[in-house]
């Protein structure tokens, strides 16, 4: 039997499923206020605000935080440049090897992270490259390209070729068309792609453990705390920070690309 209204069972299953996806994260917030620092006792014996102060005062958190921000920022810039270039090439023309290139862009996130990580690790070992900030960035930028590419290529498809031709007809050269016509239309998609890339890089841990050597990004710091916990609520405070730094860009990216249908020339 088929009707236009969902059966009660389906509704309950769907909503339970969504709650299953969201409720666990709330616990991270709760445990940041607990007075119990040696175990994950539930319900918390008492609530306190002191862990935020303690986290702020801990010297071992700041360097990883700064390193993570630095890596994410540079990787994002590299990914935006490379992702935009390749999406411009892929969206306009058909050429030999196009399919292969799209596979090549996708591969770094389609294959498990441990492969990308181990591959980079092998390359560093073969070529005797010492670990540095740049080895981390190398890995991050590689899998961030596809994020920017996906956003940019979708927008390119919606921008009508007509407005670019109109711009040339009115006497603009390629650079002026790029600056005054293409970029304003592409901007929000690039911003959204960049934000997602930043979020992905900021919180990446699998590839990073292979490319960081002795350096510690914030996720690696967190991983160490998870394996050998010290002050557990402090880890929760850091987890909240990591969560917010990834959550806010994702939300922004969603709102930036949601109204994509209103791109100039898209009405045709």
């Amino acid at each position: 039997m088929h009707s236009d209204r969902a059966s009660l069972g389906l509704k309950i299953a769907a909503i339970t499923g969504l709650l299953f996806l969201h409720l666990p994260i709330l616990l991270i917030f709760l445990y940041a206020f607990t007075t119990e620092e040696k175990s994950y006792q539930f319900p918390p014996p008492g609530l306190t605000l002191k862990w935020f102060g303690v986290a702020w005062g801990r010297d071992d958190i700041w360097p990883p935080l700064i390193l993570s921000l630095e890596v994410a920022a540079i990787a994002t810039v590299v990914a935006i440049i490379l992702g935009t270039l390749v999406s411009a090439a892929m969206s306009r023309t058909k050429f030999f090897g196009r399919e292969q290139i799209s596979l090549l862009i996708l591969l770094p996130i389609a294959l498990p992270g441990v492969i990308t990580g181990m591959a980079l690790r092998s390359a560093f070992s073969v070529m005797d490259i010492p670990y540095s900030v740049w080895t981390i960035i190398l890995g991050h930028a590689t899998f961030c390209i596809v994020i920017v590419y996906n956003n940019a290529v979708a927008r390119f498809r919606r921008i009508s070729g007509g407005i670019l031709e109109a711009s040339s007809d009115l006497g603009a050269n390629g650079f002026q068309t790029f600056r005054h016509v293409l970029l304003p239309n592409l901007g929000s998609a690039l911003l959204a792609g960049g934000m997602l890339a930043f979020a992905l890089s900021f919180d990446e841990v699998i590839v990073t453990t292979f490319t960081a050597g002795q350096q510690s990004t914030l996720p690696i710091w967190m991983l160490q705390e998870l394996v050998r916990p010290r002050q557990r609520p402090v880890t929760n405070v850091v987890a909240i920070v990591v969560f917010m730094v990834t959550f806010l860009p994702i939300l922004c990216a969603y709102y930036l690309t949601r109204d994509g249908d209103q791109t100039a020339g898209g009405g045709k």
Binding site: H22, I25, L226, T235, A239, F243, T246
Partner: peptide
Amino acid sequence: VMLPLWSSYLVKVYA
């Protein structure tokens, strides 16, 4: 669905 997909992997494991 999008938010849990994108939000921090380690934070989710920790939760």
